[in-house]
Amino acid sequence: MTTRGWEHFEHGADIGVRGCGPTLEASFEEAATALAAVVADPGTVRPLQSIAVACEAPALDILLVDFLNAIIYEMATSGLLFAAFHVTIDGARLRAEAKGEPFDAGRHEAAVEVKGATMTALKVEQLADGRWCAQCVVDV
């Protein structure tokens, strides 16, 4: 993975999402992009609409789960697919903007819905080279 980016990792029945970047916020943004990519290729999604989410948690790893679950909730209830995220974290609080567009079966190929983010393989950490990585398995 280059300085900033996301990837999926293997999990028996489901999919792991991992994001890394130069800051904690960047790692959360990339992890959310990895989540969005479980449903549909973010490259095919235009950032036409934006929604805001906010959450608060007693630990950074729980904050990641809460953030991803907030995005999953928005995907389920707003019918939006997402392509880009902007995250700010202040202590235990997170605020984020997610940009995307409504799912259009003609233009998007959606693979699967995500049921929830889990605490399996859950990790938020700063690596020796200073980069941050955030990851967990999502249930599909």
């Binding site: 729980i62 789960v65 679950n69 999953i72 389920a76 049921k115 929830g116 889990t118 605490m119 249930d139």
Partner: peptide
């Protein structure tokens, strides 16, 4: 069910 599971797990 997914949302109940998510919230209860936490």
């Amino acid at each position: 069910g997914h949302q109940i599971g998510t919230e209860a797990l936490r």
